[in-house]
Amino acid sequence: MTYEYNGTVVETDEEGYITDISLWTRELAEFIAKDENIEMSNDHWEVVNFLRDYYEEYQIAPAVRVLIKAIKKSLGTDKGNSKYLYELFPYGPAKQACKIAGLPKPTGCI
């Protein structure tokens, strides 16, 4: 699978996660999001940026339970809950947001 945007081709695995995370750009994120039927708002970006920071620090894409807990810790309970995050990313805040964030599929997701 590949994403093609602005004349660039980016390779992905069979589930649509890009294989070279260094090729991620904000434009690519917007493109993947559109492919997932998500219109990126500031709230979406907050989660995507959070995931990218988490990956930068721990070298891992967190499982959904871990993501919710970590967001709760740093952004508070209004955002660190599954209802809020599933509203933003209906197919799973970890899986779908990681895809948009250009990260691997979260460890612990089968």
Binding site: E57, Y58, Q59, I60, P62, G108
Partner: peptide, 14 residues
Amino acid sequence: MKNFSPTFRALDDY
């Protein structure tokens, strides 16, 4: 190779 030592610090979150 990927430096995975930072991931040990995420174990607490898990």
